[in-house]
Amino acid sequence: MSRFKKELSKETPEISTSSMPDIIFMLLFFFMVTTVMRETEMIVNLTPPAAENVQKLEKKSLVSYIYIGQPKDKKLGTESRIQLDDAFAVVGNIREFIAKEREARDEADRPFLVTSLKVDSDTKMGVVSDVKQELRKIGAFKINYSTRKKVVHK
């Protein structure tokens, strides 16, 4: 039988905080890498509809966004408008917008460009159809109807 040592000090030892910066730095790098800063300011109201069968948009750098919804500014009426980047646009501007988006990407990535349609649920399909027809003409075939994930109650 071994004997317990009796000369244990009564004071609790201080916790070493020297590794604290390392932990914080680790967290910091995580958030730095995952963070995406909002680059477009919304000028249309957007509440996307919910759906059950949604897929994740994989590569965010290959996505260009088209927003459609009612203007936030009430003076502009309630008709749904298209927003490209930071400004209102009409269907005719989409060609230029997609061309610009393609230009900004690497040549190898261009076939994989996805156009994400972020459309408010109150929008009428008329304007969405127009946008889709225009996208077809330009050859931007891959589209993604942006939806929230619906929580299914069973």
Binding site: L28, T35, V114, K142, N144, T147
Partner: peptide, 30 residues
């Protein structure tokens, strides 16, 4: 640690973690 904390809090506030989800479709060529 303080400096790291400051930066951490900044990125915590600005980060948006939402993943974009949606229904993928391929449009037919014209």
């Amino acid at each position: 640690a303080d400096i790291a904390f400051l930066m951490l809090i900044f990125f915590l506030m600005t980060s948006t973690m939402n993943v974009d989800t949606g229904i993928m479709r391929i449009l037919p060529p014209p």
